[in-house]
Design a protein around this nucleic acid. Structure first.
Length: 307
DNA sequence: AATACGTCCAACCGCTCTTAC
DNA sequence: AGTAAGAGCGGTTGGACGTAT
């Protein structure tokens, strides 16, 4: 048995809001607030609308200081950066952009930003393929692009996944470019606001990208070819390979990682603020990265998608 | 001018989460 | 602890509008 509907669907008006309805809702909420009960609100003010519809109308349109359209380059970057880190958590992303609603951002992403990103990425693919002297990486562009936009597609990792030890994605992993033989790789967890680096060995970092997202803020896009020549925007850390990784990813503010075999460098100690806790909470608790194997032309790939 | 097609975005739907009892 | 109801969220849809043919 399903749950009872929130309103009598037959007796509520649907579709676009009229200026009169807007005015009624706006003036009532400005005067009395929502009363903490959206379901009862339309009846109070004599609107033949579902409470959920009123809530949506207020939050997405009538609420003060709402901005519509005209996303700036900076906002684009924030959205891209957060999307790469936390996926389609529009409400979290919207919280970082004052005056923007989750619905607006979601629409903007789906209609414009995604295409913009894929366009840039495609150019990068072509350039890359030319450099590599082959077309192998042009394969199945359309379907791959979708996965790539979401995050990561990767070669089969060199460790096996065990239950509850799915890799944690990090942004920006790179070896010392002046030392191509270095076995130490620096991985950066970053956001628009701050970042910190951790040094990792090959066993700890899962170099993930075949092709990575390319934006103004995430501009590296390399095929992984070995640690001596490694640079990637997105990689994954095997939590079991980092001592104290729970502290790193569950409680970002401490920035302390156990000694073990991992050297730790912290460039940021306490200023992660809301976004970091949201992101880290999301990474650690909400989102398990489930690698899905994709086989193509005899090569095994793992597409990292969120559930 | 008519039609087809593509884009955009407000609104809806159905699900999960949270809270109150 | 269990349950019901409201709130919140992300995905999807439908229609208005613009552009191409």
């Amino acid at each position: 048995m399903g749950r009872a509907p929130c309103c009598d669907k037959a007796n509520v008006k649907r579709g676009p809001w009229s200026p009169e309805e807007d005015a009624k809702l706006k003036s009532y909420i400005e005067e009395h607030g929502t009363g903490g009960n959206w379901i009862a609100l339309p009846q109070k003010i004599g609107l033949k609308r579902c409470g959920k519809s009123c809530r949506l109308r207020w939050l997405n349109y009538l609420r003060p200081n709402i901005k519509h359209g005209g996303f700036s380059e900076e906002e684009d970057n924030i959205i891209c950066s957060l999307y790469v880190n936390i996926g389609s958590r529009w409400s979290i992303i919207a919280a970082q952009l004052p005056g923007r609603t989750d619905n607006d951002i979601k629409n903007y992403w789906n209609t414009k930003l995604k295409k913009k990103l894929l366009g840039k990425q495609r150019k990068e693919h072509h350039a890359q393929a030319r450099r590599a002297g082959g077309l192998k990486q042009e394969i199945k562009r359309e379907s791959e692009d979708t996965m790539l936009a979401v995050g990561v597609i990767s070669r089969t990792p060199h460790w096996s996944y065990e239950q509850n030890s799915w890799p944690i994605p990090v942004a920006n992993a790179y070896s010392d470019l002046n030392n191509q033989t270095s076995s130490i790789v620096t991985a950066t967890m970053n956001s628009q606001y701050s970042s910190f680096d951790i040094s990792l060995t090959q066993d700890q970092l899962y170099p993930s990208t075949v092709n990575t997202i390319t934006t103004d803020t995430c501009h590296t896009s390399n095929v992984f070819q070995g640690f001596g020549n490694f640079s990637s925007d997105l990689a994954c850390v095997d939590p079991q390979h980092i001592d104290g990784s729970e502290r790193l990813f569950y409680g970002m503010e401490s920035m302390e990682i156990g000694n073990g075999s991992t050297n730790t460098t912290s460039t940021e100690s306490t200023s992660w603020g809301d976004i970091s806790s949201l992101v880290s909470h999301y990474e650690a608790c909400q989102q398990r990265i489930l690698p899905q194997e994709v086989t193509f032309e005899g090569s095994s790939y793992f597409a990292m998608q969120t559930q």
